[in-house]
Design a protein around this nucleic acid. Structure first.
Lengths: 109, 109
DNA sequence: ATAACTACTACGTCAGACGTACTACGTTGA
DNA sequence: TCAACGTAGTACGTCTGACGTAGTAGTTAT
């Protein structure tokens, strides 16, 4: 299991990634993260929903009510143009970050 | 300039890396980080010294007084065996972390 | 009716990073 | 001689993201 502080600052990016192709909602996003990471990372509900709130306040995503199909009605989220731009910036930042950290890491060890 | 929250959790590792070969002290460590990162990252004094304190409390480094050669007497830090082990673990963790994050990152964009 | 599943919200805590400010010692040079 | 500069820190408070615990609430299967 990976320490969550490491991920800090990139949960928003992970969420945006999952919204790139189509809107989604909390439960699905959390399951997608779990699946994509093959169980290595599980986002906590509180972390997820506070991230949604932050992303929406910043204009990176928009929420809308979904059709009720099962369980409690969902809130769907859709990425905005601004959100796509932000995602691209974070991808760039990640490359620089990786570059930096790996100057201090012994990769062969 | 890279956002510092990204680095969160890895400043300790960066510091340990710089102590692997020989002991060092605050000012030198901060300059080494700046040089190694080619200016991309500058650790703040408060961040650095609180990291030293944390690392020492955890038994990853040991401090000892240095010979006064210039300016205020320095406190030197030396990595311990436990610290070397911790460093290796963090290197491992980094690989897993990178692996995870990059499933959500578009590297070509 | 009730348990199970889905979909949240509220509230409080913690740690790492940082901003600002200050202290303190020694050398150099005007 | 004394101010400026470089070195080496300490003190204190703030912010934010992640998280723990707990509770609410609608839908469906039994």
């Amino acid at each position: 299991m990976i320490g969550s502080d490491v991920i800090r600052g990139y949960t928003d990016t992970m969420i945006l990634f999952l919204l790139l192709d189509e809107p989604s909602y909390g439960y699905e996003v959390s399951k997608s993260i779990e699946n994509l990471s093959e169980g290595a990372y599980r986002i906590k509900e509180t972390t997820l929903y506070s991230a949604f709130g932050r992303l929406e306040r910043n204009g990176y995503i928009e929420s809308f009510p979904g059709n009720v199909t099962f369980g409690k009605p969902r809130t769907y989220y859709r990425i905005t143009e601004k959100g796509r731009e932000y995602y691209r910036e974070k991808c760039d930042e990640w490359k620089r970050t990786k570059n930096l950290v790996e100057r201090f890491i012994n990769l062969e060890a």
